[in-house]
């Protein structure tokens, strides 16, 4: 009985929380779903399947970084600029040449559909407010490149 009691205690205190952490989205990476597709003469053809996020609060902006964990250059920054409103800075995956990469700043003007929603939740983790939101884009640039897709994120901190 004593052995069974210790087993339950260990399972409840150690194994259970670990399983729960993975089930609820890992170690604070948040949950991200969706993808952005791009094509055109300057960006080539790419798909950004975001699976991780991080709040920009530590970097001084209201917004999130989204990206793929396995591809360090596949990154996107969706944020609310105090002066210009919602904006998206997209780093084109696999476009980096040394310290610089092909990037696009997207605002509403060049897009048939441009929606960026960033919501603060009532939860804070390590003094960072957890963010939920989504973005939906359908943009055609003057260069002829097209960016379109939808991303949803939850629990980003």
């Amino acid at each position: 009985m004593k052995k069974i009691g210790w087993g339950i205690f260990v399972a409840a205190c150690v194994v259970g929380p670990i399983i729960a952490m993975f089930a609820l989205g890992g170690f604070g990476e948040g949950e991200v779903k969706g993808e952005l597709l791009g094509s055109g003469p300057l960006v080539g053809s790419f798909a950004l399947k975001a699976d991780a996020c991080r709040s920009g609060e530590a970097d001084g902006f209201l917004g999130v970084y989204l990206g793929e964990t396995g591809r360090s250059d596949a990154r996107l920054k969706a944020f609310q600029d105090p002066a210009y409103g919602e904006m998206v800075l997209l780093q084109v995956p696999d476009s980096c040449e040394g310290p610089r990469c092909k990037q696009i700043i997207l605002k509403g003007e060049s897009c048939a559909r441009f929606s960026v929603r960033i919501e603060k939740t009532n939860t804070t983790v390590n003094d960072i407010v957890v963010l939920d939101g989504e973005l939906s884009l359908d943009c055609e640039l003057a260069s002829g490149d097209k960016i379109a897709g939808e991303l949803r994120f939850e629990g980003c901190h």
Binding site: R100, K102, E109
Partner: peptide, 8 residues
Amino acid sequence: PGAVCWGP
């Protein structure tokens, strides 16, 4: 905004 550019 709206242009493909080289950024850091």
